[in-house]
Amino acid sequence: MESEFFGYVRGAFTGADAERGGFFQAANGGTLLLDEVADLPLPMQVKLLRALQERRVRKIGASREDAVDVRVMCASHKDLAAMVAAGQFRQDLYYRLNVLALRMPTLRERGEDIPVLARAILDHLAVRYGDPHPKRLSPAALQRLVAYPFPGNVRELENLLERAYAFAESQDIELADLGPLDAGAGRAGLMHAPAPAMVPQPTAPYAYAPWGTAAVAAAPAAATPAPVPAEPPPPTAPAHAEPEPEPAGDPAERACRGIVFPIDLPARLEAVERELILQALAQTNFNRTAAAPLLGLNLRQLRYRIQQLGIREAMDAADRSAVEGEGTP
C-alpha cells in the first residue's frame, strides 16, 4: 500500500525493476481522492498524516523526499468520530482531514433521485450490452424501488438493475424481474431461527429426540422427568441403534446446520448456486435448454448466471473430455 501511495525506486524490493511514482506524485498540482479512508491500517495512517502535514513524500528505497502540492479529499461510509473514540482511527489524522466535512445523504433519504439514477444506469447498461433501445422500468417496478430502503445505497441499485436487465425478456422491466429485494434479511432469519431449539433440556438429560421436533419443545412442560437408568447403556446395545430419518422441514434450515461462524456469506451462496447449476448441467449432458427448467430459470437467465459464475470453463472441460472419449478406440 505504501508503494501505491508514495512510489518506489528501482531495486527497493523484489520486482521493483524501474522507478515508479505513487498517487501523490501523480496528483501533484491537482486533487487526490482517497476512498474508504477509514479502512487504512494504523501504520499507514501515520505515513499519510506526515505526508499531509509536511507536504513531502519519500519513495520506498529513496534517500530524499519530494515536495508535492496536492489537495486531498477523503470518503468513507463509516463514522470516523466514533472510530476515533473507539481507538480505531488516529485522532490527529482525523482532525487533519476534517477541515471541511460534507455529508452525502443515503439513497433512502433521497428517494426522488431513484428514477433519475435508474434511467442513467439503464442507459449505461444498454451501451454495455449493445442494445439500441434501453430497457425501462414499469410503473410497478419503479414504485417498488422507490419504496425500498436500499441499505447498500447506489451500489445496490446498480447491481439490482444489472440483474433485472439481464432477466427481463421484454423492453419493460417488470416487478417480477427485480426479484426479492430483501433476500439477505430472509436468509439471516433462517440462520438465526433454529437457535432456541439448540438449548439443552435439563429435565431429560438422557432423553433423545430429533432436532426441531415436538418432543424437544415439549420437554420443559413435562410433569415427570424421564427415568434415568443407574448406568448408561452399553456401547453394544445403544438405545437408538437405528439411524434417525432426516426430519422434514425447510431445506434452507437443513442447509444451515453445522455452520461455524463467522462465514463469507456471499461466497458461500455463490458456491451453492454454482454447484446446483453444475449438477443440473451434468444431469442434462450440459444441455442448457434442458437444464434451465430444472433450475426454475429461462434460458437467458441461465446463460447470465453461467457467465457471472464462470461455469463456462467446466463446460469446456466436459466438452474436451467428450471429444477425447470419442477419439479413444
Results as ranks from 00 to 15, higher is better:
67 A>V: 14
150 F>C: 05
79 D>H: 15
71 R>F: 11
174 E>M: 09
123 D>V: 06
176 A>R: 14
97 L>M: 10
110 R>W: 01
95 Y>L: 10
163 R>V: 03
188 A>S: 12
86 A>R: 11
163 R>A: 07
96 R>F: 06
174 E>C: 15
112 E>N: 12
124 H>V: 00
151 P>S: 14
186 G>R: 10
155 R>I: 10
184 G>H: 07
82 A>Q: 14
174 E>H: 09
154 V>C: 02
91 Q>R: 12
151 P>W: 12
188 A>D: 07
97 L>T: 06
130 G>S: 06
85 A>V: 14
100 L>Y: 12
91 Q>V: 03
178 L>M: 04
137 L>P: 00
100 L>H: 13
92 D>P: 10
124 H>W: 07
70 V>G: 13
119 R>T: 09
144 R>I: 02
178 L>Q: 01
79 D>W: 13
179 G>T: 09
169 E>Y: 04
153 N>P: 11
160 L>H: 02
146 V>N: 02
169 E>I: 04
96 R>D: 02
100 L>T: 13
162 E>T: 05
162 E>F: 06
79 D>K: 07
121 I>R: 03
176 A>Y: 08
68 V>G: 03
139 P>W: 09
173 I>D: 00
162 E>Y: 06
171 Q>Y: 00
135 K>S: 04
120 A>I: 04
151 P>R: 08
179 G>M: 10
86 A>M: 11
128 R>N: 05
116 V>L: 15
118 A>P: 02
187 R>Y: 13
129 Y>S: 13
131 D>W: 11
166 A>D: 06
126 A>T: 01
148 Y>V: 05
141 A>M: 01
91 Q>S: 13
160 L>Y: 00
163 R>W: 12
101 A>G: 05
167 F>E: 01
130 G>E: 00
142 L>W: 00
87 G>N: 03
164 A>F: 09
136 R>Y: 03
136 R>V: 01
97 L>N: 13
157 L>F: 12
156 E>M: 14
132 P>Q: 05
81 A>E: 15
141 A>Q: 01
153 N>C: 07
74 C>R: 05
99 V>F: 06
135 K>L: 08
133 H>T: 14
107 L>S: 03
107 L>F: 08
134 P>K: 15
131 D>L: 14
80 L>C: 14
98 N>L: 15
96 R>V: 04
66 D>K: 04
177 D>C: 13
120 A>P: 01
184 G>A: 15
189 G>E: 08
144 R>E: 12
160 L>E: 06
87 G>P: 02
73 M>D: 01
79 D>Y: 11
65 E>N: 12
116 V>G: 11
75 A>H: 01
65 E>I: 10
188 A>K: 12
159 N>Q: 15
95 Y>M: 08
130 G>N: 07
157 L>P: 14
102 L>Y: 05
118 A>G: 06
169 E>N: 05
160 L>D: 03
133 H>P: 00
182 D>G: 10
66 D>H: 10
